[in-house]
Amino acid sequence: MARLGMVIDTRKCVGCMDCVVACKTENSVPEGFNRDWITQKLTGSFPTLSLEIRSERCNHCDNPPCVSCCPTGASHVHDYGAVVLVDDKECIGCKACLASCPYDARFIHPGGYADKCTFCIHRVEKGLDPACVSVCPTRCMHFGDLDDPQSEVSRLLTSRRNHSLLPEAGTHPRIFYLT
């Protein structure tokens, strides 16, 4: 059983937001809402500075509180790739999952249900990369099976220094940032 994840090279990322725009169009994310976004962390003082640019989204955690807190089962772990999804037909919009996510990765879609990054499961199941990954002009985003030691993502993680976001929150995120 695959465990899909992302590995993003912050050394290459330029923060251009193409990944955000592509998500908008691919998934018709309504105006004013973001499934993914860019975070820029600037450290130091002029002119000795360092900048980490990160393309962020739902981390499709191995231990997802958003799923366990859901009273209807609308939030669930998809059997393909262990992708965390929301079934909008089952969602009552109680917002527990929004409050339960340490990354604030979810929002309430104008349709009244919880929404977030789907890892573009509709593309992935067709053998395509997620829209954000396939559009990235710097090719700094990599997507694949973290359980397969031969996969590009696994090899990158073993060969390069990397970190995930808020590991201390204990959700076991599946997006990693190469530094």
Partner: peptide, 13 residues
């Protein structure tokens, strides 16, 4: 100290 800028702007979040 660091500066943190995010482009996310989700209502209620």
């Amino acid at each position: 100290m660091f500066e943190l800028v995010s482009t996310r702007h989700n209502p209620m979040i």
